[in-house]
Design a protein around this nucleic acid. Structure first.
Lengths: 149, 149
DNA sequence: ATTAAATAGGACTAGAATAGTCCACAATGA
DNA sequence: TCATTGTGGACTATTCTAGTCCTATTTAAT
């Protein structure tokens, strides 16, 4: 179904909450309470987001997590790849028998294009868009075919 | 990783082969031999493609499978949804606690937008593009923000 | 009619990936 | 020093995917 994982889904919930509280640190337990997601799960997600530099953390008493940058600069693509690794639809979508003869795999090129397109789409939407969804974002167009050149 | 399933991957291989043989029916066994994919697996995929009307089948001796329409009119989106169900990144990406208060879920709207964008991208590439990847497709632009309106 | 060649539909198994939990450790503030 | 909070990694259980197989149905050829 081309689905995002549940953890990624949770991550957007967590980050949406944090974006509203972006001026202060939030403890994992507080986030768990606010979102209704179990603490161990919240904790796991927060760790991943720290590792990928979407969040900053401070340890010790009164510690917690905070956005590492402004919501406007945190793309949905960054969130997804933090949780699920690099965004890539296919490894190489074709078996050797079919495409291997020619020097390069033709179909692979098309997949790469599609992939780029999706990546661009996910890159163009930010956490800020998620928290104020009523606001119109500026017009963004993604040239698909330009990637064929 | 936002990956396509292996079966979807196989499906593109199978359909690429069939596009080249589009004037005649191909038996499942022949396709298995040509692609190197195990027969039961090929069979399963072909059934799914028939159910979603990408392929036509004829039963009985001398039966087999054929493209239901021209490769130009078979989109990658159609192939993916045949194998994986409807293309949808999230069910509803947010838990009730966070978004339920307001009449509609705000974040859901943004996900819908992102989803539309990806769907459009996948809709704009066809089986014909997969089999003749050297050819440049015309310029296609996808307006992301238009969906916010 | 009978037989052989195909697809249709669905059940089933095994393996891999995901979700979720837990624990021992490190860091920090009071 | 102690309570609090994040870190890293191991671990389990559950779900999903891939892959196989069997029986019924349809059709062509003999």
């Amino acid at each position: 179904m081309l689905r995002l994982s549940k953890l990624t889904d949770y991550a957007t919930v967590i980050l949406s909450f944090m974006a509203k509280e972006k001026t202060r640190v939030c403890a994992a337990m507080e986030i768990a309470a606010a979102t209704g997601i179990a603490l161990p799960t919240v904790s796991k997600i927060l760790k991943l987001l720290v590792n990928s530099k979407v969040l900053m953390s401070t340890r010790g008493a009164k510690g917690g997590y905070m956005l590492a940058r402004e919501p406007e600069t945190i793309s949905v693509a960054a969130i997804i790849s933090a949780l699920e690794g690099p965004i890539a639809l296919t490894e190489c979508s074709i078996s050797e028998q079919l495409c291997g003869q020619a020097s390069g795999c033709g179909i692979r090129g098309v997949w790469h294009t599609i992939n780029q397109t999706i990546h661009n789409a996910l890159e163009s939407v930010t956490l800020a868009d998620l928290v104020r969804p009523a606001a119109r974002s500026e017009e963004i167009t993604i040239p698909v075919a330009s990637l064929y050149r």
